[in-house]
């Protein structure tokens, strides 16, 4: 980034944060004045990822895979059309691969180079996913990272880390918890946490949400 000018009017009485706030405000004003952006389009972009697209999407996909063997197979072999059939597609999810957790293998997803994340099914990534501790340690000390999330897996369970270095986006299909026979897809989706679809968590058990 370019150096910092020390003669501009909004000097040093502001914190680092308000410096940033002023800069973003200035940018939006300039770009709107020049006709490059329409504030109404910005509002819609924000509303989409704040209100409409989030991990509930992925949870519904997982719940469907838990209840429908045919769908599960489709999801694991050709994820994009299977996910689109539930209504989710688009930006940052153009090339989806779904990873099946089993008693022998636990999958966990990271992007060590930036913050690649499957937006259509999980929304925008949480701060920890984009943070240096996660990006640095997920590949080198995944059991330690899981411990940070309060998750301990048997030593014999293989931990399989997927570093999202391309435009392929990964979604973990967690194992269905015991004691959930007969639950509806909606109720099952309540058990599917965001972290369980990244691989840093496990689904809730039915007794956790009663």
């Amino acid at each position: 980034m370019s150096g910092h000018d020390h003669d501009h009017p909004h000097g040093h009485e502001h914190s680092e944060l308000s410096e940033t706030e002023l800069r973003v405000r200035a940018l939006e004003t300039i770009l709107t004045e020049k006709g490059y952006v329409e504030p109404a389009a910005l509002d819609l972009l924000i509303e989409t990822y704040e209100k409409k697209v989030g991990p509930r999407n992925g949870a519904l996909v997982v719940a469907k895979a838990w209840t429908d063997a045919g769908y599960r197979k489709w999801l694991l072999t050709d994820a994009n059309p299977a996910i689109a059939s539930v209504g989710y597609a688009g930006r940052q999810g153009e090339h989806m691969v779904v990873l099946e957790n089993t008693p022998k293998r636990h999958n966990m997803v990271v992007c060590t180079l930036c913050s690649c994340y499957p937006w259509p099914v999980l929304g925008l990534p949480p701060v920890w996913y984009k943070s240096a501790p996660y990006r640095s340690r997920a590949v080198a000390d995944p059991r330690g990272v899981l411990a940070d999330f309060g998750v301990e897996l048997p030593k014999e369970t293989e931990i399989r880390i997927w570093d999202s270095t391309s435009e392929v986006r990964y979604l973990v299909l967690p194992m269905r918890p015991a004691g959930t026979e007969g639950l509806s897809e909606e109720r099952l989706a309540d058990l599917v946490t965001r972290d369980s679809m990244i691989g840093t968590g496990l689904p809730k058990r039915p007794e956790d949400i009663k």
């Binding site: 770009l31 952006v37 389009a41 910005l42 990822y49 704040e50 989030g54 999330f149």
Partner: peptide, 27 residues
């Protein structure tokens, strides 16, 4: 870099300028 620190019930954005910076970048 230390421990990973998850935030319970994390919101998509933590300040209004983050919303605007995100949307400006996309647009």
């Amino acid at each position: 870099f230390g421990k990973v620190v998850p935030e319970p019930d994390e919101p998509p954005f933590h300040a209004d300028w983050e919303r605007r910076a995100f949307a400006l970048t996309l647009a």
